[in-house]
Each structure stands twice: as structure tokens, then as C-alpha cells.
Simulated assay, not measured.
Amino acid sequence: MILLTRLSGSAFALNSELIERVDSTPDTVITLIDGSKYVVAEGLHAVINAIRHHRAEVIALSAHVQVGEVDVWPDDDRVSPEAARTRQDVPPPADSVPRLASVTPHPSLHVHENRSEGKF
């Protein structure tokens, strides 16, 4: 999200991934992919710099995420290969099992629970 200012002076956050176009006519008009338009006090270059800064931040924070592999189907030794061929719900052989990435947040990004108030 990038922080912007309406012409009225109120601040708001906008998801920069949804921006289709930024025009300077002479007001700065941001058009989203769904056709919504926002007129902002910031200039064209300030909006572009905010988007660049946000994307750089996302890339920098991604360095703190550890990625590992996870089996889509856990091993199940209870089913014989013969029975597996006749069942539809049995996963394919291990060498053809697709792998998904599991994402473990870096400890510095951990959100602490406040159990006494029932809030996070």
C-alpha cells in the first residue's frame, strides 16, 4: 500500500498493485484496473517514486522469509502398490509428486498474540 493525499487533504492508502495508469492533467489522476479513479495532491513523479519505494520494500522484506519444500501428499505406507492402482484417491508415485513451497516467516516478523484481550 502507498500513502496518498486527496485534494481535500485527507490521507488514504492505495494498493499500488491495482494501478493501471497515472495521469497528470494537471491534477494527478490514478486509474485502477477496475476503472476507479482517484485525484491526488501528489505529483506524477511522487506517485511513481512511492510505488517504486513500496516494491523495493516488498523485495527487501522477502529476504527475511525462509522457503522450504512440502509434499502435496504425505507418504502412506498402508496402501499396497496394487491397491493404489485401483483407487482414485491415492497419490501418484513419489517421483511424480509436485512440490509446494512452504513459507516460514522470519522470527523478526512474528506477530505476538495478546491472549488476555483475545486480540492479535
Rank of each mutant, 00 (worst) to 15 (best):
R99Y: 02
P98T: 09
K119T: 15
Y38M: 02
K37V: 08
A84T: 10
I59A: 11
S24C: 03
D34Y: 02
G9W: 00
F12N: 06
E82H: 04
V79R: 01
M1L: 12
H112I: 11
A84S: 14
P107K: 04
H64Q: 14
D71Q: 11
S102G: 09
A63H: 06
I19D: 02
T28E: 05
S116E: 15
D23P: 00
S116A: 13
A13M: 11
G9F: 02
A41N: 02
R21A: 10
D95T: 09
R52V: 13
E113I: 07
V39E: 02
N49M: 07
E69F: 05
Q66I: 13
P74A: 09
R6A: 08
V22K: 02
F120I: 10
R115M: 09
S8Y: 01
I59C: 03
V70T: 15
E57I: 04
S108P: 01
V39T: 15
D75S: 11
H54N: 13
G43T: 12
V39I: 08
G9E: 05
A41C: 01
V97M: 15
M1P: 08
V40L: 02
S102M: 05
F12R: 05
A50H: 07
D77Y: 03
R55T: 09
L18A: 12
R52C: 06
M1C: 05
I48H: 13
E113R: 08
I2S: 00
V79A: 05
S108I: 12
D34P: 02
V90H: 02
N15K: 09
G9V: 08
Y38E: 04
L109H: 10
A101M: 08
L14Q: 06
P93H: 02
H64C: 08
N49R: 13
A50M: 09
D89M: 04
N49C: 06
H45S: 10
Q88L: 14
K119H: 04
V79M: 08
L44S: 03
L100V: 14
N49L: 08
L4G: 07
D71I: 04
L61I: 06
P98R: 13
L32C: 06
A13N: 12
H112D: 13
A56G: 13
L61Y: 11
P81C: 05
S96G: 00
E69L: 06
L18S: 13
S8N: 12
A60E: 15
A83C: 02
D34M: 07
T104L: 15
E117N: 07
Q66S: 15
A50L: 14
P74H: 06
A63N: 06
D71Y: 10
L61K: 12
L18V: 08
E42C: 05
A13K: 10
S102I: 06
L3P: 10
V58K: 14
W73K: 10
A46E: 15
Y38D: 00
P93Q: 00
E82R: 05
I48Q: 10
P74D: 11
P81L: 05
S36V: 06
L32D: 08
E20K: 09
D95G: 06
L44E: 04
E17C: 03
E42Q: 15
V72F: 08
T104Y: 05
R115T: 09
Y38P: 00
P81W: 04
P105K: 11
T86Y: 03
A101C: 04
P26K: 00
V72L: 15
D75A: 14
I30V: 12
L7F: 01
R52I: 14
D76V: 08
